[in-house]
């Protein structure tokens, strides 16, 4: 009994200090991720040290920057992947060509395709990773995140209409089938884009945009000039309506990981 508790304590400590919560006897799997999103997710789950290589642009957390890369984000090099002899290749379905999975099968490398288009998919994918790859006995981290999300969303009772601008020119918005749109919807938001549209980041007509002013207009940007530009345009297009313009930093909101979950509440509290 005491030994079991002690083992649990060891596992807990290893999570707290940020080490991979793998048992000493367990073989440490060698993982390759094909996108910065998956790299960030693996670190958040506490298994960053299992990564042997990743894609370009993997820059968060800072340990990810020192990892070797497998080539360009959209066209990863199969040769480089094979050279690392990974146990698993985690393939991001959003950014990686579908053919990569077939190619990996042909060279007998195990791969898992990860979809992260909604909050549910983030949790289910994380669960799959923890159970199937890392053989985690406990899903404490996910339970905590779920509780946190539930308590955060409860505070917001007001419904609001929103649009998320990805790019001003050409005007590109976040569709309903994106993680960020789904996350904001959990807080009572309604994306004004037609929910039947399957496109993740559609380019939309400015005329439609002007005709459908949202309550909150989000803009994914780090640059103040972009926000000022949109502010100027919003005043021209909707002179009689109050449209709340909110900047979302790409550092926190560009990738569908647990990071946006931690920051969205504060942003929405200010906006609403």
């Amino acid at each position: 009994m005491f030994l079991l508790s002690f083992t649990k304590l060891l596992v807990l400590c290893s999570i707290i200090i940020g080490a991979s919560p793998l048992e000493a006897s367990q073989k440490v799997p060698k993982i390759i991720t094909t996108s910065p999103t998956l790299t960030e997710l693996i670190f958040q789950l506490g298994y960053g040290k299992t990564l042997v290589a990743t894609s370009e642009f993997s820059d968060y957390p800072k340990e990810a920057k020192s990892l070797p890369t497998i080539g360009s984000l959209f066209y990863p090099s199969l040769e480089k992947i094979v050279r690392f002899s990974p146990d698993y290749v985690l393939v991001d379905s959003e950014s990686t060509p579908h053919t990569l999975v077939t190619q990996l099968n042909k060279v007998k490398l195990a791969s898992i395709s990860i979809h992260l288009r909604s909050v549910e998919e983030l949790f289910t994918s994380s669960k799959t990773l923890l159970q199937e790859i890392f053989h985690a006995q406990h899903l404490t981290i996910l339970e905590e995140k779920t509780k946190q999300l539930q308590s955060n969303t409860k505070i917001f009772s007001k419904n609001f209409r929103f649009l998320i601008v990805a790019w001003i020119s050409p005007l590109t918005l976040f569709g309903n089938s994106t993680f960020l749109s789904d996350l904001i919807s959990k807080y009572g938001g309604q994306n004004l884009l037609n929910s039947n549209l399957q496109a993740a980041y559609p380019q939309v007509s400015l005329e439609w945009f002007v005709k459908n002013p949202p309550d909150i207009l989000f803009l994914l940007t780090n640059q103040k000039e972009n926000l000022d530009e949109l502010q100027r345009l919003a005043q021209k297009w909707w002179p009689n309506q109050k449209v709340n313009l909110v900047a979302l930093s790409p550092d926190y909101f560009a990738r569908p990981t647990f990071t946006p979950l931690e920051h969205i509440s504060a942003i929405l509290k200010d906006a609403l």
Partner: peptide
């Protein structure tokens, strides 16, 4: 080669 995040522009 540009940052992929939202290179649609």
């Amino acid at each position: 080669l540009q940052n992929h995040t939202l290179g649609s522009g």
